[in-house]
């Protein structure tokens, strides 16, 4: 008799741990052809709440690390991912229904994207900050700082490259993230969480919830301790995106709006995904003896 394989339980990733949903609910995840693959945890609003608490707790430490250190950790994520490429290729192929070569391309691009962002960690301030020559005897400079807790509705289609491309620019600058994965294609996100857990990323810096962005999005958008939100996961749903934006106004979250359709993730992203979640702090000091 052939050996029976041991299946993985797909759980949430909150505060560095892998809990099941607080609600106890799960949902069936199918592959691209509609065949049952696994049951994923169905995150609830209370999981959103817990993830925000975990993220907030991690913010001071993560944002206080040196940019060099954050860059090293992002690079470490890439290293560990590279090591598990076959697993990611299978997951992406299964989720997105891609051929082997295409799936490999997605994984390669995701790893390369992490490497690209890792390099940005200690350059971003130099590129987007500057000295200001004010008309008086003052030292004056403007430097970027992370916005804080960022809620990210990850894209629904690109289950890995899109996820990584949404998450990396958030955390590279020192933000912490609560990510809602693709609803239909959540499994690469859970595997990615396992990579994060073994890549020196402090617990709580990234929290990944598998579940329905249309259900969790409003809780995240309305949460008063979330500072910003990326709505790319509701691309193509302008009504919902608009509602989330309205909810986000309650505490003036920085909103990265939902595009009309999911973007082409293969294009080099530019600075905007990072600058969308930065504050600029200007410091003045007199110059005297």
């Amino acid at each position: 008799m052939a050996r029976l394989d041991v299946r993985k339980t797909y759980k949430l990733y909150i505060g560095g741990a892998f809990p099941r949903s607080e609600s106890g609910h799960s949902y069936e995840v199918a592959d691209a052809a509609g065949r049952f693959v696994a049951n994923a945890s169905l995150a609830s609003r209370k999981d959103v709440r817990d993830a925000v608490v975990a993220a907030r707790k991690a913010f001071g430490g993560w944002s206080g690390r040196t940019a060099y250190n954050r860059g090293q950790i992002l690079y470490r994520i890439a290293e560990v991912m590279e090591d598990r490429r076959p697993q990611f290729e299978d997951a992406v192929r299964q989720s997105e229904g891609l051929g082997a070569a295409a799936a490999r391309g997605q994984v390669d691009a995701a790893v390369d994207r992490l490497v690209w962002y890792a390099g940005w960690a200690d350059k971003l301030a130099q590129v987007v900050g500057n000295a200001n020559p004010v008309a008086g005897p003052f030292f004056n400079h403007t430097a970027p700082e992370p916005t804080g807790v960022v809620g990210a509705l990850a894209p629904q289609e690109s289950s890995l490259l899109g996820l990584v491309s949404t998450l990396a620019p958030v955390v590279v600058s020192g933000n912490v993230a609560v990510v809602v994965s693709s609803y239909g294609r959540p499994l690469p996100a859970v595997t990615f969480a396992e990579v994060l857990a073994t890549s020196d990323v402090p617990g709580g810096v990234v929290n990944i919830l598998t579940g329905d962005a249309t259900v969790l999005g409003p809780w995240l958008a309305g949460h008063m301790d979330v500072n910003a939100i990326d709505l790319v996961g509701v691309a193509g749903h302008p009504d919902l995106a608009g509602e989330l934006e309205v909810a986000a106004a309650d505490n003036l979250k920085r909103v990265r709006r939902a595009p009309a359709a999911e973007p082409d993730w293969s294009i080099e992203p530019g600075l905007e995904p990072m600058t969308a979640f930065l504050e600029h702090k200007t410091v003045w000091h007199p110059v005297g003896v």
Binding site: N132, P133, V134, A135, G136, F138, N140, T142, H280, T282, W284, H285, P286
Partner: peptide
């Protein structure tokens, strides 16, 4: 060590 200073070059 100052307060309420403004300048067009300063965001």
């Amino acid at each position: 060590n100052t307060f309420n200073k403004f300048d067009p070059t300063s965001p």
